[in-house]
Simulated scan of single mutants.
Amino acid sequence: MKPAPPPDDEDRQLFRDAIGPVRPLERGGTTAPPRPRPPAEPLQFLRDEAAVRHELLDHPFDPAAIEVGEELVWLQAGQSPRLLRRLRRGQFSVSAEIDLHQMTVPVAREAIGQFIDACRRERALCVRIVHGKGLRSKADGPVLKKLTDQLLRRRADVLAFASARPAQGGTGAVIVLLRPL
């Protein structure tokens, strides 16, 4: 193979015009390789963790934020305990809901009956009844909660019920499994 002829002046000028101005390298000098970067520190995470410790110590204790009241749990005779376990774990999808807040006992009694009947007709088999925790009830305790418990235990179309998980209302609501039509 024959070496390529050296570029002429016109080619050199064309090359310089194409690459633009350049700065010559220093002779004999070497540039040091970049220093390795220090390992990353999760500073925001550490700040957040420190803030949580301080917040836990600084914030006043709010007893209303803790679950209050007895948990309601009932399983119809002859039904599998596994059904109740699954219900308490929240493994059923709630398809309808009624809120009894501000209702009187007679109105709530009628509303629960009509709600369950309508749910069965609509084939809604897992429902939530929000009865409240009775925090404004006097010495009698949670009136609507007791009423809900009594009414559901008497109905043949109720297979099981249990107090809701905290995210669904806790002891202020009950999840009910209904017998299909």
Score class of each variant (00 low, 15 high):
P21M: 04
D58C: 11
E26V: 05
Q76G: 10
Q44Y: 11
A51F: 04
R82E: 15
R120I: 15
A64E: 12
S137K: 08
P42S: 12
D157W: 06
P3I: 09
K133I: 04
R165H: 09
R23L: 10
V52Y: 08
D9T: 10
F161R: 02
V143S: 08
S93Q: 11
L151W: 09
Q114W: 09
A156W: 09
P24W: 07
A65M: 11
S93H: 10
L151F: 09
R128V: 13
T171P: 11
A111C: 05
A156G: 11
T171H: 08
A77S: 15
T171I: 06
R109V: 05
P5Q: 06
V94P: 05
G90M: 02
P3F: 11
V107D: 10
R120S: 09
G20H: 03
E70D: 14
R165N: 07
D117M: 07
D9W: 09
D62V: 14
G172R: 00
T104S: 15
P142T: 04
R37D: 10
F45A: 14
G134K: 02
G90I: 01
L125D: 00
L14Y: 04
D8A: 15
P60H: 12
I175Y: 04
D9Y: 08
M103G: 01
A4W: 08
L87V: 04
Q91T: 03
I19A: 02
A162I: 01
S163Y: 03
G134Q: 01
R53I: 12
L152W: 06
D99T: 06
E70H: 10
E122F: 07
R27Q: 14
D48Y: 07
R12I: 15
E55G: 05
P21Y: 03
R23S: 11
Q91I: 00
G28T: 04
V73R: 15
F15P: 00
K145A: 04
R153L: 06
L181K: 08
S137T: 10
E97D: 14
G69A: 02
R85V: 12
R179N: 13
E10A: 14
G113E: 07
S95T: 15
C119K: 00
L151K: 06
L57Q: 13
R165Q: 12
I66A: 14
D62L: 13
F61G: 06
L43C: 10
K145Q: 07
V68E: 08
A18L: 13
I112P: 00
V176Q: 02
Q168H: 12
V107K: 13
P36N: 12
L125P: 06
L178K: 00
E97C: 14
G69Y: 02
E26A: 15
I19H: 05
P34E: 11
L100R: 01
A139M: 09
R155G: 03
D157E: 15
C126R: 00
R82T: 15
A51V: 05
I175M: 06
D157A: 11
L72Q: 05
I98F: 04
R179T: 13
P39D: 02
P38C: 02
L100C: 01
E41I: 11
G90N: 01
Q44H: 12
F45T: 14
D48N: 10
I19G: 00
L43G: 13
T104M: 09
L125Q: 05
F15W: 10
I112Q: 00
V52A: 09
P36T: 14
E70N: 08
L72W: 04
G29Y: 13
R23G: 05
A96K: 03
R120P: 04
F92C: 01
H131M: 01
R165G: 05
